[in-house]
């Protein structure tokens, strides 16, 4: 399957932060900006607005503050459930990104909005899932629906979620001993 050899990952993938093209951006939508501003006002240093587009916003958070920000969002904005949790491997930055997509069922005015709450955790070359520094606080107490998603991220990318009661594997076999398969250095056979 894959090897955990220490060949450097290919260089052609530019990191996302490294390319902020300064073009004439479309005007920032007011409604989306209002609820993002709530978060930025509360956590001025720890959060960074990635983009505010129509119906879609993204906020990058430091990994230590993710639980606090999530609790603030849960308590002060109508976002009440997590739709999706995406884990992305960035071998260039030696980081793994975790993106929570939050939505709202209770407030009809927010029904189009999806707030992406993103963070990065350090990545290790020789992963030992659960026992290395690739750890993140679980948002399960704030958004219960991330339970299975976080289990999936754990097995697919090796991000251990502290505070998650059930960090077993979900989709992979119980005796999976290889690299977490969604990391970029896990090579598909024949590709």
């Amino acid at each position: 399957m894959s090897t955990s050899e220490t060949t450097p990952p290919p260089k052609e993938i530019p990191p996302p932060k490294a390319a902020p093209p300064e073009k004439t951006k479309p005007p920032v939508p007011a409604f989306e900006k209002s609820y993002v501003d709530q978060i930025t006002n509360q956590f001025s240093d720890d959060v960074e607005v990635e983009y505010i587009k129509e119906n879609r916003t993204r906020v990058n958070v430091k990994k230590e503050k993710i639980a606090e920000v999530a609790k603030f969002i849960k308590d002060n904005t109508p976002f009440d459930h997590a739709e999706s949790v995406t884990g992305v491997d960035f071998p260039e930055d030696k980081e793994i990104g975790v993106i929570y997509h939050l939505g709202s069922y209770t407030d009809p005015t927010y029904s189009k909005q999806v707030l992406a709450l993103a963070t990065r955790v350090p990545r290790e070359e020789n992963p030992n899932p659960g026992n290395d520094s690739t750890k993140l606080q679980s948002l399960r107490d704030m958004f219960y629906s991330v339970e299975f998603h976080e289990r999936e991220i754990f097995e697919m990318l090796g991000v251990y979620f502290e505070g998650h009661p059930d960090n077993r594997r979900l989709l992979l076999p119980e005796d999976w001993a290889d690299l977490p398969p969604l990391r970029k250095d896990f090579k598909n056979r024949g590709r």
């Binding site: 739709e83 995406t86 992305v88 997509h101 299975f148 998603h149």
Partner: peptide, 27 residues
């Protein structure tokens, strides 16, 4: 059914995540 595509300037997606309803309802 949601689809989250992280794209670079490449012909293939950098990361593609399918956020499907069955997985969400399984909980």
């Amino acid at each position: 059914a949601g689809c989250h595509i992280i794209s670079r300037e490449k012909p293939e997606p950098y990361r593609l995540k399918l956020s499907v309803s069955s997985f969400r309802n399984l909980i």
